[in-house]
Design a binder for these strands. Structure first.
Lengths: 353, 353
DNA sequence: GCAGGTTTGTGTAACGTTACAATGGCATGG
DNA sequence: CCATGCCATTGTAACGTTACACAAACCTGC
């Protein structure tokens, strides 16, 4: 970093970026800083047309852009929301569910002139995410992963922050009213699949779930089991995929199939279901005649697979938008009563179950 | 917003957020502001252990978090990168290519304690994206879409910014050394598909491309045509899908198929290819015997389709990481010589061509 | 007991912006 | 020609932080 001599002989650091300030523009245009500021912020009623033109010229010539940090500091407002995702696996971060959620949030915020900060962080280091340790966002969103104790402690942490927070896909009861829960009805989705499989007279089920400990997955399994609760002699066995990678999931499924072929395989997500279908094909099993297969979070995968996948449709994009709306409302000072938004899911009946 | 009376009777706005400042902590701990600041920033060699403990207690009790805007203003550094994507279509924003690119960038930045701002914006309003109009990021990334003139003007705009910028998937020659181009070799990918189809003795090709005007798509088509250039009598016809939605793409493909069945259909992306396969199936065409089908940007779709899709594998995640590395290096003052990074793509031979 | 050093802590002036009060100029009207 | 009001513009004091210079306290060794 460059240093320069001051008159008195001391040295002082110079800015690293060659940023243009209001003061420079004001000198160039021969007006005061405040006049430039008023022009920049479109307070046209305060500035004579002729002056405004001159200032606008200077702004364009010098390529002036207002310094956000200074403005935010002065206004005690950042017009920015952060989202922390407690996982760093690229496969999870670019999962259609996550990316649609983020798209919805981002698009909404963009429309009301807010920006979005995105950070993925491992569950163990959750609380040291920059977005959380430094106060640089007006509001936060979070997707919690990891063991239940870990998630609980992260949840408590978020409650203490005192700024509006949306937590997605989580079941804890908030004790503080800064937190709003937004989730899709994973339990109902799981239950709907369970009922469908009951109609198909399925007796044994393999539930394939990712290693990732995520509340949504738990709820899906819970919903599934609950729908089967009153029917005796239905065997549900959970299988942990060693990773979310296609090959790993396919391999572990094949291992299970070679031991015993269940009547149905319920995968916790569509991408897992894709690998499961592939494993069934490799075993020469007909789907759904020999084994029924279902997925979860249907965006596009169900359109590609053959047979087309029976899955549960997710309103991820709308959930993201909704979270944005809630947060911006809160920041605007509105007391939002609803602390819990559950989005309904839709059962998509494909040919695989 | 609350107001409060000052001693002299004036009113002045209070902060909307109940943020705790260094001053408050310092009062609570009975030390100076600077001591607290030193503790917060881990300058442990400057503070006696006993004092540090006391300060840390106060910090924890008051729930202090440093104000990022103030710090950034003082340091003239934001430790933050912004990415602008010149499209607001959720289907594009959550396209595997885009979301993997963003994951790579986000993960890298997170590791070096930078944050990432994401904004999608329509090509027409590109230059009014908050990320661009306000100076709040140390560096920027951009994905340009829209007509060539529009993209050119956005590119010029980015050149004038004077801060490090990475532009993805674009072919313009930068005139200023703040811009670095990062792209995958779409041309080579298209050419590889072209050569593969030549081997298959294909004579007529339908190129299905999205409405979205994106440089990557142009390059793919150009590469394809270039590979066929020296072989006479090969007919390449481009079809514009009315949207990237599966149903629209399938419909338009079927319309074309009912007029004439080409030897091959080259889709500009895998998701388009998925719809194309579905259209072929609906027409009772065998793939690849009656018509060969190929995709582009292979992440997972090729694993799901039957026949499995022949496609071009994209290193999107690595491209995102690489962009982050370059930008952070530049911000660290390193002169980066390379102004142009081209990532090689891989041809994945599936069963569809 | 005091020069010389080290360790620990503090005071101050920025950083670039905005809210607000205050200024000067220029009409209008009595 | 002076009050009055309005318009356009400006000066100033924050916002919360950090770099730097400096001060105070506490050691040494002679």
């Amino acid at each position: 970093m460059r240093r320069m001599k001051l008159q008195n002989g001391r040295t002082r650091r110079t800015r690293r970026s060659n940023s243009v300030t209001l003061a420079q523009v004001s000198r160039d245009a021969g007006v005061s800083i405040m006049t430039v500021s008023n022009v920049v912020r479109g307070r046209t009623e305060l500035v004579k047309l002729e002056t405004r033109r001159r200032v606008e010229e200077s702004i364009a010539r010098l390529n002036y852009r207002p310094n956000l940090s200074a403005r935010n500091l002065r206004l005690a407002e950042n017009r920015s929301v952060g989202i922390v995702i407690a996982d760093t696996d690229p496969a999870f971060l670019s999962d259609p569910f996550i990316s649609r959620l983020v798209s919805g949030l981002s698009n909404y915020l963009s429309g009301v002139d807010y920006t979005l900060d995105v950070q993925g962080v491992s569950p163990e280091r959750f609380e040291s995410a920059t977005i959380l340790t430094k106060a640089g966002n007006d509001a936060l969103c979070a997707i919690l992963c990891g063991s239940k104790e870990l998630r609980k402690s992260h949840f408590e942490y978020l409650q203490k922050l005192g700024q509006p927070v949306v937590v997605f896909q989580e079941m804890f009861q908030p004790h503080s009213d800064n937190i709003v829960m937004v989730h899709q009805d994973d339990f109902a989705g799981g239950a709907a699949l369970g009922r469908l499989l009951l109609e198909r007279n399925v007796r044994s089920i393999l539930f394939v779930r990712p290693m990732l400990e995520w509340c949504a997955v738990e709820q899906r399994e819970r919903g599934l089991r609950s729908a089967l609760r009153h029917t005796k002699h239905i065997d549900v066995k959970a299988v942990l995929a060693p990773s979310e990678g296609f090959d790993d999931v396919e391999r572990i499924t094949r291992e299970h199939l070679s031991r015993r072929v269940p009547d149905a395989i319920v995968a916790a997500t569509d991408s897992l279901a894709g690998a499961v279908l592939s494993a069934c094909e490799a075993h020469g099993l007909r789907v759904p005649a020999d084994v029924a297969v279902t997925g979860f979070n249907g965006f596009d995968v169900w359109r590609y697979t053959r047979p087309s996948l029976t899955t549960v449709m997710s309103p991820a994009y709308e959930m993201g938008r909704h979270a944005g709306e809630i947060l911006v409302q809160r920041l605007g000072g509105k007391k939002v009563v609803r602390l819990n938004s559950i989005f309904p899911v839709g059962l998509h009946k494909g040919d695989s179950a």
